[in-house]
Write a protein that binds this DNA or RNA. Structure first.
Length: 561
DNA sequence: ATAAGCACGC
DNA sequence: GACGTACGTGCTTATA
């Protein structure tokens, strides 16, 4: 094991058990011993989901966990994002040991155990030791695999390992929500929703129709009102009633608009306005999301309980919710810093396309610059409509475009979409070559990589099924872009966090939303935080195009944009 | 309990 | 002839 001393941190559901692999140290509930072991940089820490353990220890003690963090689950994720990282499954698979039987303590029992007021049963202790030993045995196996893939080892050690503690701190900091604002907004929108429900029911001539039921809506629109006799059913025999479909029916009957509006209000109320206040931790008065660091296939984080990465911003009604995300000190502010067009910039960098690089280097709006080239006009002559179309294509490129998909989105015939893509590739021939090259690489290696070497395996890239193959080809294009962006912002978080610590600032990083970092800033630190965020985000890596982060502040998250 | 449908973000 | 732009989470209804 590298000669490195190690400590295995083993948690059951609600409680952290500290297990040392030195037999003579038995009583690890003892604070001085715990402190010495956990804060010793020379002792590496082994476990699964160490972020949870770091948080639990921080909540109950003032101990700082130091030393290398070997999170077997996270290491396994870096090895291959596509497969299961369920720790019980991995242990069973690699060691043929079953640790799924381990009993977990109730919250109350866990509390008592930690304070030393109660003791584990012999049975619990035995199972815990078994799990700990399994993790300890598994770690070097997974680490050897990582070291075999040199880039994977680098991704783990330079990105994921240092990010664990940063994320733990971000989650613990939490974000302040103005509940009173949400409660008032809830009253307002609920009233509106009820009114619309009444109107819709009247129009439907059905006093009890459930507007939240796509099935009932489908029957109403297509069987009772016969709005579209040519409507096709899904494979499961259901009518489609989603937003795109209903927008096409808008002019045929007034109820369609009511349904859309009802859905919009219902979504905002049930997912955000009414749900968020219930998730406020009474101890801290804040909402604390959990970032899943070992989940997405591309290397992005995800956010749950609550998901704070999908707070509305698109519509006026939705944006209102962001006003409730406020600084914890009323005299402070929210600072938001977001990367501008990071994925498209990465496309410019990775493809090396001279025209796309030039578009970014001109410092002009890239969608307008693209439109200028596509329509063969000067940048100031580009119309809003031309820019919108160019923007759609730019996004399409990142997602692995098809003529049909583009035609749908731009509401133009497939033939035109085809021509549009051809023009795009003529404008940016390097992009065209890159897309072909990355697909070829993917077919040969059955994986693609980010700038830092994070892999996404594409095991079905050579499938005989053309649909499956095409799907994998889109992933081959998108994963290096989305994944490199994820790597870059993760590194930025590590650097920003280090600066905040080094400069002894009190403000806190509270959210990451894929290309954006959000800070809860105390009154005197606004300029310092904005400077640090911009500097660290922009200087993570030198690309062939500038990497820019736009930074602003306000008295809430909405104003900080 | 689980799946399907829908809608929110990047 | 089908498929048809990446990555997520969560709410609600319907079905088993």
């Amino acid at each position: 094991m590298n000669g490195e001393n190690s400590l295995t941190l083993c948690s059951t559901d609600n409680f952290v058990h500290i297990i040392e692999n030195l037999e003579e140290l038995q009583n690890t509930q003892d604070y001085p011993i715990l402190n010495e072991l956990l804060s010793e940089p020379g002792i590496c820490k082994i476990g699964a989901d160490l972020k949870e353990i770091i948080k639990a220890v921080a909540e109950k003690t003032d101990i700082q966990i130091c030393g290398n963090l070997y999170d077997v689950q996270l290491m396994h994720y870096v090895l291959n994002t596509e497969i299961s990282h369920n720790i019980n499954f991995i242990v069973k698979q690699q060691l043929s040991i079953d640790i799924e039987t381990i009993t977990s303590n109730s919250k109350e029992e866990a509390k008592d155990l930690f304070s030393g007021a109660a003791e584990e049963t012999e049975e619990q202790k035995k199972e815990r030791k078994k799990k700990s030993a399994a993790l300890c045995a598994l770690m070097p196996i997974v680490r050897d695999e990582l070291e075999k893939k040199l880039s994977g080892d680098r991704v783990y050690k330079e990105i994921e390992m240092p990010l664990i503690s940063v994320l733990a701190q971000v989650e613990m900091a939490g974000v302040k929500i103005d509940t009173r604002q949400l409660k008032e907004y809830s009253k307002e929108l609920t009233a509106q929703m009820n009114e619309i429900e009444q109107e819709a029911r009247k129009l439907a001539d059905d006093a009890s129709i459930n507007l939240s039921s796509p099935k009932q809506i489908g029957i109403l629109l297509y069987e009772k009102l016969k709005l579209n006799p040519n409507v096709k059913k899904s494979v499961k025999g259901n009518y489609s009633t989603d937003e795109t479909t209903l927008n096409e029916l808008k002019d045929t009957h007034p109820i369609v608009e009511k349904i859309l509006e009802y859905r919009n209000l219902k979504k905002l109320l049930s997912t955000y306005i009414d749900a968020l206040p219930l998730l406020i931790n009474p101890k801290t008065g804040k909402v604390h999301t959990t970032f899943n660091q070992a989940l997405t296939s591309t290397g992005r984080l995800s956010s749950i309980n609550p998901n704070l990465q999908n707070i509305p911003v698109r519509t006026e009604r939705g944006r209102e919710i962001r006003k409730a995300f406020v600084p914890s000190d009323p005299a402070g502010c929210i600072v938001s810093a977001d990367y501008s067009q990071i994925e498209l910039r990465l496309m410019a960098h990775m493809s090396g396309d001279e025209n796309l690089i030039a578009a970014f280097n001109s410092g002009k709006d890239v969608h307008a610059a693209t439109a200028a080239k596509l329509y063969n006009v000067s940048v100031d002559e580009v119309t809003a409509e031309q820019r919108r179309k160019a923007k759609t294509v730019n996004f399409g490129i990142i997602y692995g475009i098809s003529a049909f998909g583009l035609a749908e989105r731009m509401e133009i015939p497939i033939k035109e979409a085809k021509e549009f893509i051809e023009t795009y590739f003529k404008t940016y021939p390097g992009v065209s070559r890159y897309i072909n090259a990355i697909a070829e690489t993917a077919r040969k290696k059955e994986y693609v990589e980010t700038i830092y070497g994070r892999r996404r395996y594409l095991k079905d890239i050579n499938s005989r099924n053309a649909n499956v193959r095409k799907f994998n080809e889109r992933n081959a294009v998108n994963a290096p872009l989305q994944g490199s962006a994820a790597d870059i912002i993760k590194l930025a978080m590590i650097h920003v966090f280090a600066r905040i610590q080094a400069e002894h600032l009190k403000s806190k990083m509270v959210l990451q939303v894929h290309d954006e970092l959000v800070f809860d800033v105390v009154p005197s630190e606004r300029e310092a935080i904005m400077k640090i965020a911009k500097e660290e985000m922009e200087n993570v890596i030198k690309l062939k195009v500038p990497l820019t982060a736009d930074c602003s502040y306000g008295e809430n998250w909405l104003q900080a944009h």
